[in-house]
Amino acid sequence: MTDPFSTISSYNDASRYASARGSRTPPGSVPGARQKQSIILIVLTYLIFFALLIAPLLQMIAGAFEHGLHSFISALTRPAAIHAMAMTGAVVVIVTAINTIFGILTALVLVRGEWLGTKLRHVLNSLIDLPFAVSPIIGGFMIVLLLGPNTIMGAMFAWAGIDIVYAFPGMVLATLFVTFPLMVREVVPVLQEIGTQQEEAASMLGSYDWTTFWRVTWPSIRWGVLYGVVLTIARSLGEFGAVLVVSGNIMNKTQTATTLVYQDVENFNIAAASSVALVLALISVVLLLVMEWAKKHKEHKAHQAHNGQKGVH
């Protein structure tokens, strides 16, 4: 099981230790050689950072504005782009809503569901990570195999007038498959850390499950949930493989922002591709900032909880 708190704190300790060591030059060593070494390392790090992140981003901005602001706006306002971004938006909203509710429920069952038995919970716990291990394209392919128009289940849904594959429901399903572990993995460690005593205390004071959840459990897990929501949004916004297989990438029908970028690149329409990609990148930056903010709160709460257990005498 991954425990984000422990990795974060150990990372902090390590960096603190490293900086403490760096500030003190050990006696007997040659400071000049050391300094040279670290300068080379720092320059190298910046170079890699530039080559991998900044340069492509600059190239993308340049590409987007290659033919001026006007072309950038028209690339974004063409009907295919507007439809694709609306599609992505719809998928993100629905997937995030479903994933949040079911992710929290799954985490509650995994951590608190003693009626399931330890072994079954163990199996379920490892199954939840399956989407991390399986390539998204294969995930999408599995949905096609299970619910495609030529399968029994797909035919049944088609008979009922619901298209799943090559339609919106399939895209939601594929994105759900890919994002499912994100919420569970954020909430499970928090639930484990807070334990059951607060909830038991609430029930001894007359509070039933629903009230206990909202008044006792929820305030403890909400920052973890927010973090999970941001991760889910980011992941479903950028999901490509699974959606590509399931949607069929039909323009103005099942095309999403990412598959539109893919198609623009295929058509050598670099300026249009860059414009849409730039919008996606900007949203990612905003999400990243929210994520940092949520993480800080989460750590703060975890820290408080830790102190709370230790007790200040």
Partner: peptide
């Protein structure tokens, strides 16, 4: 409770 289980928020 043993560790009081106060509602920490």
């Amino acid at each position: 409770f043993q560790h009081y289980a106060l509602f920490k928020h």
